[in-house]
Design a protein around this nucleic acid. Structure first.
Lengths: 343, 343
DNA sequence: AGGCCCAATGTTAGCGCTCACACTAGCTAT
DNA sequence: ATAGCTAGTGTGAGCGCTAACATTGGGCCT
């Protein structure tokens, strides 16, 4: 009674049964072709593929997920994806996941604590993801993972070591050490540090890297100045530094704080790098265009995302996989660092 | 034979059948409770809820999606989520979606053209999403949507008008006009413009807003300087501006280009705002800490995300919903703009 | 008291796919 | 020739849920 469908794609989307009928096989054979089972004769496979093309058939991944228990989807729990670091990490993970044939569901937290992290993981799990990456730069986020008792595979990124799940991160200590060593090698007697907030794992590790280098070479260890990643805090702490005449080199825990500091110094008539050398951290795209261009530490988030994804996929497959992934950062020297002024 | 399960959550996750058995009802009744159907007696409902709690039962959304054809999941196609604008838009959409009870799958494009956009939409659709938001700031992305023939609901964001699908965006012309008017009102004779790349819709609209204001007041219309959003391009175009002594006011199409310009001017010994006033666009978090703090146009991405989501949800429900959502931006005056120098 | 209705529940049939197995040829080995 | 293989295919069942219909048992009308 119904007219023959001239444009099959306009009707109810084709299902396996339709393909099977057109190709003159059973739907199981279609399924075999789709999952490239070796047990299909070459010409049968061709016939099925032709039918698939003709009907513009696309497998229903929801049905497949229900039948197999695998959704080919990964979850990412993240926090403030407006910041350069988290945004880049998310992008890196997402790219790697797509390349591996996985879709990505994200869940951005307003605040990072045990409850929100666990709830987000649970929610993603309920949504059917095969595994979850948690971008947990705050200590609270890492702690939450300790109490994780779920059947879903989880890896953490940018978090401190954790005994129960794999962790991928960029080597913050190495980066901070490189920044500090760079300044010392230019001839500075010591290096001051604008730190990030103390509940951020990365802030603490940058402090540790900075401190360990100073201690190793026997340089005096100045009191650290505690900021909160914002340019504002760098600006305000700049005031403190201005009151200490012997400061010649500063390592800021991120580029934004370095920017705030730059501005404060400029307002006070102090010239960078002539009077003071500054190193940042992150290498945000703007850093090369600060006044002066900022020497900083570049992190390869693409690599981080990819490698953390491999760890997760291994877990999903039931293999052990790496438990600890560390990506090395890189010092980028620009115009904000020179030898200290002669006195 | 098997030991009684002391900790039910350690065993195979409970399904509706288990809950039904424990509550002494059929699984259909459990389903009714879950979908709060009114046709369940209060005490039955209580019994079911108790069983759900006791077994830590969580509905399997994949199975539900298969049965209903609805996955309560949305897709977002985006492009370079490392940029402040797209990242913020994505975050806004994601928050709004979660508040509405939807999960979000993202697909980040390497490049934006007809093929990639359509492929990404198709892929999300195959993944079972109920609707898709396309963040399509490039003209190529918008064009792709014109050829969209799919059964999935789609809205575009940050794109130009489109006859077939709803579009949400921030009113770029209004923002650019506000920036230009602000400079003129300070007494500048005219305003120069560092534009964004010409394949970006937003860049073109900002040009249009700038041009229309100049024309409306009869101010001379300077040749526009074409950049590419990067601080580098702002820096390079700064060279051109330096060669034109009569320039007193510049409207940069984004904050990064303004930053590059700031640096170039500073190198040349020109002081902002004394010699030259500058307005940016976006209000990135760093803008308040440039040297000097940047007058700019703030965009409310959270609002944008929410409203574009409502448009999408309406479409999914089969209602018409808004076809055009426009969010007004806001001028933020800081230290980079003052009256022109007396000559 | 008989019929009727409605509220509350149960039953049946899928959603579109994959898994485990059963079957049919056409071979080889004995 | 007969059993025994294997490559290729088909059949049944079921993943966990919802939608539509079927059933039950009061309460109310006349």
């Amino acid at each position: 009674m119904t007219a023959p469908q001239l444009r099959p794609e306009k009707r109810r989307p084709a299902v396996m049964e339709d393909v099977a009928r057109l190709a003159g096989v059973s739907y199981q054979t279609v399924s075999r072709v789709l999952n490239d089972s070796p047990k299909v004769r070459a010409d049968t496979r061709e016939r099925v593929l032709a039918a698939i093309r003709q009907l513009d058939y696309r497998p229903n991944s929801v049905a497949r997920a229900l039948a197999t228990g695998r959704s080919k989807t990964l979850g990412v729990v993240s926090f403030d994806t407006t910041l350069y670091g988290p945004a880049s990490t998310l992008l890196g993970i997402e790219r790697a996941a797509h390349d591996a044939g996985y879709g990505v569901s994200v869940s951005s937290l307003h605040s990072l604590n045990r409850g929100t992290v666990l709830a987000a993981i649970q929610q993603l799990r309920d949504q059917g993801v095969d595994g979850v990456v948690v971008i947990a730069p705050l200590r609270a986020g890492v702690d939450a993972l300790r109490h994780l008792r779920t059947d879903v595979a989880v890896v953490a990124v940018a978090a401190g070591p954790n005994e129960s799940i794999p962790v991928a991160s960029i080597d913050q200590m190495a980066g901070a050490a490189a920044a500090t060593r760079h300044l010392l090698s230019l001839g500075h007697k010591t290096v001051w540090h604008l730190a990030g907030p103390n509940d951020w794992k990365e802030a603490e590790e940058r402090i540790e890297g900075w401190r360990s280098v100073l201690q190793a070479v026997g340089a005096p260890l100045p009191a650290l100045l505690r900021g909160d990643w914002t340019a504002r805090s760098g600006y305000e702490l700049g005031q403190n530094l201005l009151e200490i005449p012997e400061v010649t080199a500063v390592f800021a825990a991120n580029d934004q704080m370095a920017l705030g500091l730059l501005r404060r110094l400029h307002e006070a008539g102090r010239e960078v790098p002539r009077d003071l050398s500054i190193v940042g951290f992150d290498d945000i795209p703007e850093a090369a265009y600060f006044t002066p261009p900022l020497t900083t530490i570049r992190q390869d988030f693409t690599d981080l995302g990819r490698r953390c994804l491999y760890a997760l996929l291994a877990r999903i497959e039931g293999e052990a996989g790496p438990t600890r992934v560390v990506v090395a950062p890189e010092l980028v020297v620009r115009g904000s660092t020179v030898a200290p002024p002669k006195r």
